[in-house]
Design a protein around this nucleic acid. Structure first.
Lengths: 161, 161
DNA sequence: AGAGTAAAAGACATTAAACTCTTTTAATCT
DNA sequence: AGATTAAAAGAGTTTAATGTCTTTTACTCT
């Protein structure tokens, strides 16, 4: 009887974003709305989820949260939908991350040690610190407006094909 | 009846490591064993899990995988346990990551776009690319030996307190 | 050979993330 | 007022990650 090493014991992660999927969906949705709701137009959840190929109801939940935190506005009823408010475009991406993923994300350790820091670092702390800080800085500096303008200028995209 | 905004609609992630917990556990366990199994000694799962405060049985699963992939060796029976083989200390951390998290991790996009790349980037691609590459480079360059030597020299730690 | 020990193996349980569905509420239009 | 539309709200489902338990296998020692 030959042993064929058929299956791995541990299931490797099928998809592993740096942050949650909700965060990615949120960023893309806000950017999409910022791009399309000029002159007071409202964008329906339907339109956003279809355009971005993002699950309708799940995005609904995420949008709800963003509305509660004042990042974006919504209206019910016919002609309702989502639309930017005065501050939407000036929000920094880190604010969105804090809503979707919580603020914990930023102090996590690669090796899973609680309260890993420069004083008592894990063996990888210093190697990862600058990279992690780079990501955080990008999220702190970039605003919704910057994303929207980049997409508008054709420099980047919100969807695949 | 006052509405008090009682609870968030979306549960924020309670703990969000950059990679999986399994990866962190694996790195710490291998390093611990490399440090303690000099002169052919074997380290029991019991000892590792207690020392690192890592769930016993879950670590067992992870170790099993590492053994299958030849990263570390094990022996059953009394005086059994885990021990480094000739190549253990020269393994690069990226190999461990590929076992615990799969190779997919490395091509994930912050905004959740499939096949996001420099030719058709998401609005954050360029900001994150260098940071992500820095992490990958660290995992490609660092070996188990380096981790162990750093801990041995007192420069870093595998546990909190 | 028999007792004891420790990993291997696999089934099972729990938790959190991701996703879906249904009902309710509020707005607009006829 | 009634029909329609679309978000709000919340309950429910699914999947993957994490964690636990029990049995089996293999090894060592007496």
């Amino acid at each position: 009887m030959t042993c064929t090493f058929a299956k791995a014991r541990l299931q490797a992660r099928t998809f592993a974003p740096m942050f949650s999927k909700a965060f990615g969906y949120a960023l893309r949705a806000i950017t999409y709305i910022a791009l399309h709701c000029e002159d007071g137009k409202r964008i329906s959840l339907q339109e956003v989820s279809e355009h971005l190929a993002v699950p309708h109801h799940f995005l609904g939940k995420i949008m709800q949260d963003l509305v509660h935190h004042g990042i974006i506005d919504s209206a019910k009823g016919p002609t309702g939908g989502f639309f930017v408010n005065a501050r939407t475009c000036d929000y920094h991406l880190i604010e969105v991350l804090k809503i979707t993923d919580g603020s914990q994300v930023l102090n996590s350790c690669v090796m899973g040690i609680r309260h890993c820091n420069a004083e008592r670092p894990c063996p990888l702390h210093h190697d990862f610190a600058s990279c992690k800080n780079g990501m955080i800085r990008a999220l702190e500096e970039k605003t919704v407006r910057m994303l929207a303008e980049d997409v508008k200028a054709g420099g980047s995209f919100l969807i695949r094909e």
